[in-house]
């Protein structure tokens, strides 16, 4: 049995994967595409929080909100300029896949030019360790878990108790019927892309205090959250949460026993799962 510290680290990773996978599923359920640039919005969010905290001296929770707003706005812009055109009838799914993949290079290049390639840490935010008897947990890791919980509760409220959330849920079920009832499907798409990207950005900002921020930090979480999405089942929000938690914990626990090959084991596990249950754990069976 791995020590408790490993489980805590796994939980921290889970929080990140879960938030990102949640945003990805939201975008998928409305736009019908996978946003391959998700990891780069995560990276940009980390940078916004870093500069807000270190350069502007804004308190950490507030800078998280700022990063959500800034990167969410950027995501909306991307939806409006690129994705809306490339998902219009006549385009195949490949055009938008290639475009969002090209944006990966675009944003990484932009971040590398603008912010430099060095690792940037935010260790000064919330220093200190909580003593739990046999082991200690740093306040930063607790902050990651707490903020993720807050974000997820906020998402629950937005999706289930507000009018916007109702419009989003209606659009994801029946876009045509929703537009007949006065929902502007075009705007729901833009808003959902904003929310999805804001979630990724906040995940990046939250992890910035534990790990460091650099232009290429988005690549592995992107692949991991993609796997979390397919484990849970494309289009299932519960699935995204469960998949994210599973992946984060498994990754950390397997890495404890077999180090480098943990990712191989993890990928194998996902492949086997997909072959046994192609629609994922919580996905609807294919019609």
């Amino acid at each position: 049995m791995p020590p408790a510290g490993i489980w805590i680290d796994g939980l921290v990773q889970s929080c990140i994967y879960m938030t990102m996978a949640f945003g990805m599923v939201l975008v998928f359920s409305i736009l019908g595409i996978l946003n391959w640039t998700h990891g780069q919005f995560y990276m940009l969010g980390g940078f916004v929080v870093y500069y807000a905290v270190t350069a502007a001296g804004i308190p950490f929770p507030l800078s998280l909100l700022i990063s959500g707003a800034v990167v969410g706005g950027l995501g909306m812009l991307v939806e409006k300029v690129v994705i809306e055109r490339l998902t219009s009838p006549g385009y195949g799914i490949l055009s938008v896949t290639a475009a969002t993949n090209a944006l990966i290079f675009f944003f990484e290049g932009a971040a590398g030019m603008g912010f430099g390639l060095m690792n940037k840490g935010m260790a000064t935010v919330l220093p200190g360790v909580l003593d739990m008897g046999s082991f200690g947990v740093s306040y930063q890791k607790i902050a990651v878990i707490v903020f993720t919980l807050i974000i997820m509760v906020a998402m629950y409220i937005v999706l289930n108790l507000t009018k916007v959330g109702k419009a989003i849920r209606a659009t994801s079920q029946e876009p045509d019927a929703a537009s007949l009832y006065g929902v502007s499907v075009k705007w729901v798409r833009v808003i959902i892309m904003g929310i999805g990207c804001a979630l990724a950005a906040m995940a990046g900002g939250v992890i910035g205090i534990v790990q460091s921020v650099n232009p290429f930090m988005g690549r592995i979480p992107m692949i991991m959250s993609l796997l979390a999405v397919v484990i849970g089942g494309l289009g299932s929000l519960t699935g995204a949460i469960v998949g994210g938690i599973m992946l984060g914990l498994l990754n950390s626990v397997i890495a404890y026993s077999i180090s480098y090959y943990s990712e191989v084991a993890l990928f194998m596990l996902v492949i086997i799962l997909l072959l046994i249950r192609p629609q994922g754990l919580f996905g609807a069976a294919p019609k």
Partner: peptide, 9 residues
Amino acid sequence: PNIQYLVFG
């Protein structure tokens, strides 16, 4: 540095 990724994308 890095402008190549930006322009390529």
